[in-house]
Amino acid sequence: MAEKYPERFAAWLLDEPPLTAEVLKTELSVEPIRADAVLLLSGQRILHLEFQVQVVTEPALLLRMLDYWVRLYRRYRIPITQVVIFLKEPPAATMIETCFQVEATYHEYRIVKLWQESPERFLQDPALLPFAPLAATEQPEQLLQQVAAQVSRIEPERQRREIAASAQILAGLRFPKTLVRQLLRGGFMRESVIYQDILAEGLQQGLQQGLQQGELNLILRLLPRRVGIVPVEIQAQIQKLSIAQLEALADALLDFTDLEDLTEWLQTHAANSTGSPEA
């Protein structure tokens, strides 16, 4: 979403929105590492975004952000704004650090805690709408209903499908799977084009297989942005996963940093996969 709507993300996160925003290559040289999103703003500043589910990572997020900054600055030699967007509230005692410091070396970046953000900005902008289910609210189920209603109004149809899929994945970090399905795939959403598309995809092999194919297509589009090129043999393994396994992979891939993370996950979770959809 950040790469598809770079100006909208920059307008949300910066005090002075840029005139233009260009998506830059996210794989940084030397020992390859991949940033989540790197945007060139009006040709004068880079906005580097990282999306995190967990606070504790390996290597440590503090060190990774410094590493990203050095590599980006070495290549572009212009100011860099780094923002880490935390998607899920950690346990109460968890400390979220914002700077790396060892002796004379000091590096700081911004953080955004979605669970403390007002949902209004997200609800008003389709590009940011998938973040709304994770925003601050005293009535989370009502908020999810608002998200579903906003999704159903999005035009054109292709954008509606993309944003609905993203909203479903992120909502799964906060809400039970059954509720997400009920509100974003059923209920009054049955009258929306999104639901009709899911039905159309499933006409030949049944609705469940249609849903499974939708999950598969989304994951195969997201994975290269997290881990780089996915070999054909690994894609074949993913295509054999059940819909439950695909949903678990959709959640897990938010924490992947390289191809090894994906292969380890498949070894652990997909050993008994037969490729047949769930009943």
Rank of each mutant, 00 (worst) to 15 (best):
residue 109 Y to Q: 06
residue 109 Y to T: 01
residue 110 R to P: 00
residue 111 I to E: 06
residue 113 K to V: 05
residue 114 L to R: 09
residue 115 W to L: 05
residue 115 W to N: 01
residue 117 E to P: 04
residue 118 S to P: 11
residue 119 P to K: 06
residue 119 P to G: 03
residue 120 E to I: 10
residue 120 E to H: 09
residue 121 R to T: 13
residue 122 F to H: 13
residue 122 F to G: 05
residue 123 L to T: 03
residue 123 L to C: 01
residue 124 Q to G: 08
residue 124 Q to K: 15
residue 124 Q to L: 14
residue 124 Q to S: 14
residue 124 Q to P: 01
residue 125 D to H: 13
residue 125 D to P: 05
residue 125 D to T: 14
residue 126 P to D: 08
residue 126 P to F: 14
residue 126 P to R: 11
residue 127 A to Q: 01
residue 127 A to Y: 04
residue 128 L to S: 09
residue 129 L to A: 11
residue 129 L to M: 11
residue 130 P to D: 00
residue 130 P to Q: 03
residue 130 P to H: 00
residue 131 F to S: 10
residue 133 P to A: 07
residue 133 P to D: 03
residue 138 E to G: 06
residue 139 Q to K: 15
residue 140 P to Y: 12
residue 140 P to R: 07
residue 141 E to P: 06
residue 141 E to C: 08
residue 143 L to W: 06
residue 143 L to P: 06
residue 143 L to N: 08
residue 144 L to N: 11
residue 145 Q to L: 13
residue 146 Q to W: 10
residue 147 V to Q: 09
residue 147 V to D: 04
residue 148 A to D: 05
residue 149 A to H: 12
residue 150 Q to D: 01
residue 150 Q to K: 15
residue 151 V to K: 02
residue 153 R to E: 14
residue 153 R to V: 02
residue 154 I to L: 06
residue 154 I to T: 00
residue 154 I to G: 03
residue 155 E to N: 12
residue 155 E to K: 14
residue 155 E to I: 07
residue 155 E to G: 14
residue 156 P to F: 11
residue 156 P to T: 11
residue 157 E to T: 13
residue 161 R to N: 01
residue 161 R to G: 00
residue 162 E to A: 13
residue 162 E to R: 13
residue 162 E to D: 13
residue 162 E to K: 09
residue 163 I to H: 02
residue 164 A to V: 06
residue 164 A to I: 02
residue 165 A to R: 12
residue 165 A to H: 05
residue 166 S to K: 00
residue 168 Q to G: 03
residue 169 I to W: 04
residue 169 I to Q: 07
residue 169 I to H: 03
residue 170 L to Y: 04
residue 170 L to K: 00
residue 170 L to F: 04
residue 172 G to Y: 05
residue 172 G to N: 12
residue 173 L to V: 06
residue 173 L to R: 07
residue 174 R to Q: 12
residue 175 F to T: 00
residue 176 P to M: 11
residue 176 P to S: 09
residue 176 P to L: 10
residue 177 K to D: 14
residue 177 K to G: 09
residue 178 T to Q: 14
residue 178 T to S: 15
residue 178 T to W: 14
residue 179 L to Y: 00
residue 179 L to I: 04
residue 179 L to H: 00
residue 181 R to T: 05
residue 181 R to E: 14
residue 181 R to G: 15
residue 182 Q to W: 07
residue 182 Q to N: 02
residue 183 L to H: 11
residue 183 L to C: 08
residue 183 L to D: 04
residue 184 L to S: 07
residue 184 L to M: 11
residue 184 L to W: 06
residue 185 R to K: 10
residue 186 G to D: 15
residue 186 G to S: 15
residue 187 G to C: 04
residue 187 G to N: 00
residue 188 F to E: 15
residue 188 F to P: 08
residue 189 M to W: 03
residue 191 E to I: 00
residue 191 E to R: 10
residue 191 E to W: 06
residue 191 E to D: 10
residue 191 E to A: 13
residue 191 E to V: 06
residue 192 S to Q: 06
residue 192 S to P: 02
residue 194 I to E: 11
residue 194 I to C: 07
residue 196 Q to P: 02
residue 198 I to V: 14
residue 198 I to T: 14
residue 200 A to F: 13
residue 200 A to Y: 10
residue 203 L to K: 09
residue 203 L to D: 04
residue 203 L to W: 09
residue 204 Q to H: 13
residue 206 G to M: 11
residue 206 G to S: 09
residue 207 L to C: 01
residue 208 Q to S: 10
